[in-house]
């Protein structure tokens, strides 16, 4: 009896495992930076050449760091969702313009609209590498203490915002009282 049941159970188990694996996105590499302090940066602002965007200045309240570039096709797809989310004004939305030409970036924003509170220019891509960026768009949720709490690779969707970002933000507000 067992000689027939056991292989069947093993085969079914393997089948379930492999089937679940089909729905795993290999592009989604778990970030080692979750629950670690966000890498320190101090970069020029895209629209105000004299201003800087830095981790020091951003500390004190949670913010969403969205890594984007004008050459990134998925960023265009994500853009209306970011715009809608920015209109709610529930969190500071910081852009990190990664490995891009500032002129191209400004043109892109004037064409589609600018959802960001401020935009850091990372033309050489070094800050992006510090954040472990490998595919734009990527979005990091950083709390008031400057600790990365969540990372999303790929375009944000209303579902991701509702399921992953908003509950975390609410918890931060409740804990931090800001």
């Amino acid at each position: 009896m067992w000689r027939f049941v056991l292989p069947l159970v093993l085969a079914l188990g393997l089948g379930v495992l492999l089937y679940a694996g089909l729905h795993n996105d290999p592009k989604n590499i778990p970030s080692p930076l979750i629950d670690k302090p966000a890498p320190v940066f101090d970069l020029p602002e895209l629209n105000q050449p004299d201003a800087r965007v830095s981790t020091g200045a951003l500390a004190g309240e949670p913010y969403l760091l969205n890594v984007w570039a004008s050459w990134c096709v998925t960023c265009r797809q994500e853009h209306p969702i970011l715009e809608a989310f920015a209109r709610q004004g529930s969190v500071r939305l910081v852009g990190l313009n990664w490995k891009d030409q500032p002129d191209d970036a400004r043109r892109w924003l004037s064409q589609f609209g600018n959802p960001y509170t401020e935009i850091a220019v990372d033309e050489a891509g070094r800050t992006g590498v510090d954040f472990g960026v490998y595919g734009t768009p990527e979005t990091f949720l950083v709390d008031a203490k400057g600790v990365i709490r969540f990372k999303h690779v790929g375009a944000l969707t209303p579902e991701v915002i509702a399921r992953e970002i908003e509950p975390r933000l609410a918890a931060m507000r409740a804990a931090g009282g800001s």
């Binding site: 080692p32 930076l33 590498v129 472990g132």
Partner: peptide, 8 residues
């Protein structure tokens, strides 16, 4: 690199 991108 591991600190940024993981063991991957």
């Amino acid at each position: 690199l591991v600190e940024r991108y993981g063991d991957f």
